[in-house]
Design a protein around this nucleic acid. Structure first.
Lengths: 223, 223
DNA sequence: GGTCGCTTGTCACCGGGCTGTCACCGGCTC
DNA sequence: GAGCCGGTGACAGCCCGGTGACAAGCGACC
């Protein structure tokens, strides 16, 4: 990766924070260190960090909250969460909150560096964890869809199609692309599978329509 | 992110491979499963996967080699490596080879799913540029045309003709060229199809005219 | 193991809008 | 004024997409 990578370390344990900061600087990163969530959010507003190293147990504002707000702001930083040795569900929950990776304390420093590098390689901003379109919300982590607050039960295929459409609202997605990404090799492109699935999806979503058809083109959600 | 969810699982232990495949399909991913590195590379050439779940210990071609070659090909897939419980340096090495994440066996299935989701949460493909001419805008991705901000509903043929003209503003496009690019081989060159379509297109675009006619030459948009 | 229910792929059929064709008209050029 | 060339309105066939029905596959549950 080109240029210096900007890293923000958020860690309330001061000694640990300094140690991490110094170590990362020695590895060539441009590092800022703050010790609480308020400062973290302030800095995030000002500086386009590449990676955010975030302790989960913070005073005032928790790491989870920082994570959520960072996601909501559409901030470009990749998030690496530091957690105390916890349960599996804790760890999974962290990822689904919008973190891109996590590391359990205590950790070895080379691993932290390697993970930061791996994160910085992903040049692309993360997507906020919940997809919205009008009064439809799709939560990838919880695998749920609601319309006007009411749950809409969807089958796996229907959910995948809707998720695919909602990632790029307003963009027309062709039948071929849907077959490529939602179905697998076994899918027969000469059948009516896609349009049938879309019909069922539309029926479950109800009125007014969320998905429009573009003749000869494909389907579009939103706008 | 979740919309694009094509996953290739490369795992030589057949039962494990099947289990992972079935589980991921139930989570809504489009999954292909192969059991060796050769097949993996073949599939990677053919299909644009989003995430590659790669066992490190493979027969014939090692996971490391697949990883390297996938990286060399500039393939878009994110790589999640599965490793036997190994040393730290092994794990770091995997990340530096180009893998984006790793998981040590044995692992819990929910964690695998969470990590794949985290990986799939990634770049949106670049948006094709919007074509403009005076107050007319044509967005190829959204398949929309607006005039002075107001949407102009066009049929597929009309849209294709306008798009073709707008890609080279000011250039005269002959009827033959339009037939070649917008219509297919079945089009009958001795009929009035093109001029009829152009008439309808002009009518929908309204005043002032965007498309001018060059007698004996063809049509031109803009300039 | 049997049965129920859900999901999903396939087929047949329908309806509507797109589009190709034709006839006719109008303007420009010899 | 005749000959061309392009524009326009009407119309009919057709193709694309929507829908309902059905069956196979697969878990879940008893």
């Amino acid at each position: 990766m080109l240029g210096r990578m900007r890293v923000l370390v958020v860690e309330d344990h001061e000694l640990l924070a300094r140690t991490i900061g110094a170590g990362l600087r020695r590895e060539g990163f441009a590092v800022d260190v703050v010790t609480d969530g308020d400062r973290a959010l302030q800095n995030l507003d000002l500086i386009p960090y590449d990676v955010l190293v975030l302790d989960r147990d913070l005073p005032t504002i928790s790491g989870d909250d920082v994570c959520r707000q960072a996601g909501a702001h559409g901030l470009p930083a990749r998030i690496l969460m530091l957690t105390a040795a916890g349960t599996l569900s804790d760890r999974v929950h962290g990822l689904d909150l919008g973190a891109d990776d996590y590391l359990t304390k205590p950790f070895d420093f080379p691993e932290l560096v390697a993970r930061i590098r791996a994160l910085a390689r992903r040049a692309v901003p993360p997507i906020p964890p919940v997809l919205r379109c009008a009064d439809v919300e799709l939560d990838p982590a919880r695998r749920t869809v609601t319309r006007a607050g009411r749950p809409v039960p969807l089958s796996p295929k229907e959910f995948a199609v809707l998720a695919h459409l909602l990632t790029r609202p307003g963009v027309v997605v062709s039948t071929e692309e849907l077959l490529d990404h939602v179905w697998d090799e076994a899918a027969n492109p000469f059948t009516t599978t896609v349009k049938t699935t879309l019909g069922r999806l539309r029926a479950k979503l109800g009125e007014p329509p969320i998905i429009t058809t573009v003749r000869e083109g494909g389907y579009r959600a939103g706008d």
